[in-house]
């Protein structure tokens, strides 16, 4: 189902320039954020609770508008974008929400089909793809189940399947392993790595430092609403790679090739 993306990996997918975010009259939650995410890059966003990780992601998936500064998505200045164009930008972004935000009145299959339906595609064009994807994330036996009957790990995988089904150009995941045990966290991380290998840009917000360090993926840290120095030091240099974050005034981040996910690596249902 999933094909390798033929994308220019020097293309900038996300660009923040002096961005600040304020909720109401409160002090700025995010301050002076300036960075770029290149197409096909994989990054973690770390920081303590309340540092602004979720707020940053929300700015990218257009759940909030910045109080100041400029944000470009896919080369388009969202401050100048017309409201009617925003849904089409959102369709290029896959989001795994922190609370998963599943539609509880819909089956697993219907939840995953949502982005396709909203994009106006006919069921005949995506039914088999969804079935294949659900098999791939280990929910093949629960396509007709309602979300409330799923375990935490299954719900997480369902949320991920919904986020990736429409082949978005970038996937944003907010604490996707937050409620999972370490093993399941690693397996989900492997899934993201595979998607990244297929060309999708990935940005994962996580406060699980063990997960981040064990992944070997580049990460940048946010504290009190400001980007700070990178958390992960170089693991292995790869000069040919410039897929990483380029923060103004920051050292270049490192990148290590993600693991590949074979058929044997498919996520399986949790134990009995």
């Amino acid at each position: 189902m999933i094909e390798l993306a033929d994308r220019d990996q020097t293309e900038t997918i996300v660009r923040f320039d002096g961005v600040g975010l304020r909720y109401g009259r409160s002090p700025e939650t995010l301050q002076d954020l300036s960075f770029e995410l290149k197409a096909g890059s994989f990054h973690f966003l770390t920081g303590p609770s309340g540092a602004g990780k979720s707020s940053l992601l929300k700015l990218i998936y257009l759940a909030h508008r910045p109080s100041r500064g400029r944000i470009e998505l896919f080369g388009q200045d969202i401050g100048r974008a017309k409201r009617k164009d925003l849904p089409f930008l959102r369709r290029r972004i896959g989001v795994v929400f922190q609370e998963m935000n599943l539609l509880e009145h819909m089956s697993v299959f219907d939840n995953v089909a949502l982005p396709m339906r909203l994009a106006g595609q006919k069921p005949a064009t995506y039914r088999s793809d969804i079935a294949e994807l659900l098999q791939w994330v280990g929910l093949g036996a629960k396509m007709h189940a309602m979300p409330e009957t799923l375990s935490g790990g299954e719900r997480q995988r369902l949320a991920i399947a919904r986020a990736v089904v429409a082949r978005p150009e970038i996937i944003l995941a907010d604490e996707p392993t937050g409620n999972l045990d370490q093993e399941m966290g690693q397996r989900i991380l492997k899934l993201f790595s595979e998607l990244n290998r297929l060309g999708t840009t990935v940005l994962i917000a996580s406060h699980d430092l063990d997960l981040v360090t064990s992944s070997g993926m580049p990460a940048f840290n946010i504290e009190s609403g400001r980007l700070t120095s990178p958390l992960i030091e170089a693991i292995e240099d790869d000069p040919a790679d410039d897929l990483g974050l380029v923060a103004s005034g920051e050292p270049e981040f490192v990148y290590r090739r993600p693991l590949t996910l074979s058929d044997e690596d498919r996520l399986e249902d949790e134990g009995p």
């Binding site: 009145h105 299959f109 219907d110 089909a113 069921p123 039914r127 088999s128 079935a131 036996a141 007709h144």
Partner: peptide, 19 residues
């Protein structure tokens, strides 16, 4: 179980829940 579910016969559910 999954044996009962045939994706080819799937009909999209209502997007808004019934109240």
């Amino acid at each position: 179980m999954s044996m009962a579910f045939n994706p080819e016969r799937w009909k999209p559910a209502a997007l808004l829940p019934h109240e």
